[in-house]
Design a protein around this nucleic acid. Structure first.
Lengths: 178, 178, 178, 178
DNA sequence: AATGAATGAGACTTCATTCAT
DNA sequence: GATGAATGAAGTCTCATTCAT
């Protein structure tokens, strides 16, 4: 499933890789889509937990933001196939709106928003900043960065890249690297 | 083709929407994939030209960067289906590496890199900055921003959003909004 | 099993309704078809016994014939699903000829033929009458009457309908209703 | 399709017997059920026309009734597979009520009812007779008679059997055979 | 050039049946 | 005896692709 999208992966091939028969899939999942969503939901819950733990384990706005960036990049590095599946197919699906997956996604992005609001409260940024824009630029950017590292076959140096992303986000291009 | 990916769109439906017969498609394209790639290449060339014109029409680093951001967001706004197709399917395809589409993509991102290097030369940023990271964060972020505006059904206020993205990228979160 | 034929009813659904596991069915029956035939045979024996009792409990040709008509209609009313199953599927099956079910069916129709012969002996009809035709018209007709009452959702007023059928069969349309 | 019901006949086998590929079936019919219904509707229209012509070609109640009986038996003899399909599967289907097939069936039975009403008008029977009962007994009976002749492998002597059925219906068992 | 009927491989899914527990 | 997980064949249906016209 790493190469080729969801539509290209046949249920038969999934069953073969799982070492079971085609029919058994349907004892546990109602349809191919239900299987996909179940797998993604499980993955997403794990990602969500890691993010919440990363925030809980640290104090202060910049440290927490760095923690979130690190866990996000690490999730991508560890489960690139699933991340790719989510990015390129599920978010786009016609029935995504209102699905359990969207709810998980909302909870996930809320974790970041909460940290950003803390940053505002701590005076780390001007109160008039558009937090949703920051969130979108950050998540979208990380996606791109991580995907490129996957596509180019290299490995992702999560702590180093996270540091640079944090610096860029906080101080902008003008500031250069720390 | 707006909803549902490439796999979901049948050649017959494409032919119907184009007002031609199924068979005629195959006089002009070798396969469904070749059709998709041809459509995307044409689209990509247009995007590339718009980007180059935007750069040529302006002077100075910040103005040129703003121009690029605006044309990129506008491309997404005008052809969201094609952008989505490119984002979620082509870049992921097994044979993307080395394809004409990748070459177009490279030329496109090179336009941005050139502008960024001008910024370095003009002293707008420290020379030790990771330009590829900036590029990935910018393109990925814009993708996310644009996609969200599409998904939420709203329209994208390109000039306003471009301004905010530019400010965030240049000065970081700390600076707030202009 | 009321709606949808034998092919539409899965063994799993039968097991579920019986409150047993799928596998247990196969300890008692060799196949889905064997289960169906066993169920039908049990049902048919009951119908046969009721018919024989109805005849034994009465005397004289018209009373016995009425009794048979009543028990037949009542069987249909009480077990419409089974009657329907028999009518629309079993009698038509490739291996019906020579099966135990056919033998039961023969014994059942023989009860009617015996009563009809008694009618001939009692002088209630001309001896040259085609008793098999009468039998087929009667059974086929009752099937239709009963099925229609089922399909139309109404209940079947067995004694009243039986009376009318008897009158029609004995005296024909010319005579009208008693 | 002569042996085994609709569920047992695969679309592949239908295609094979028709000398076309599986897929072509679906260019002309939306589903297996739609194919079945289209075939049955065509057949039913033919039967209906034959019945109407038989009535139109004759005058007087008994002659017309005999004509209807003859055409019905002949339809069964000529297309036993289709008749069986209709009898054992369609009338029973969950979506039969309200379908085009039911409408055709209604028109068909109305032809008989009209003739029967003519009989009442001509004084051939008492006005208090239950015409729907007569209709059901007649159609059901003919079905049974015809099916038995098919099942027993014999051929159906339509004119002779029609005569006997008419006599039985008109004068009842008491009258014997003409 | 253009059509669209025809193909046939392959997809998802169901379900009668088996068997280890 | 009893379970129900597992199998795998077979079914309906879709669709990219071809080709006679």
């Amino acid at each position: 499933m790493v190469r080729g999208g969801f539509a290209e992966a046949s249920v038969a091939s999934v069953a073969r890789q799982a070492g079971v028969s085609d029919g058994l899939i349907y004892r546990y999942f109602d349809s191919k889509e239900a299987l996909r969503d179940a797998v993604l939901a499980r993955f997403y819950k794990r990602v969500l937990e890691r993010a919440e733990q990363a925030v809980a384990a640290r104090a202060g706005f910049p440290a927490r933001l760095l923690g979130l960036i690190e866990t996000h990049l690490a999730s991508f590095r560890d489960d690139r196939a699933l991340c790719r599946l989510f990015i390129s197919e599920v978010r786009v699906a016609a029935d995504y709106a209102g699905s359990p997956l969207q709810e998980l996604n909302r909870r996930y992005t809320r974790v970041l928003l909460k940290v950003l609001r803390q940053g505002v409260a701590e005076g780390a940024m001007q109160p008039n900043i558009d937090l949703r824009l920051v969130r979108d630029m950050l998540y979208g950017g990380m996606e791109h960065v991580a995907w490129r590292s996957v596509a180019e076959g290299g490995s992702l140096d999560v702590p180093a890249v996270a540091q640079r992303i944090l610096a860029l986000l906080l101080h902008g291009m003008e500031a250069g690297l720390a």
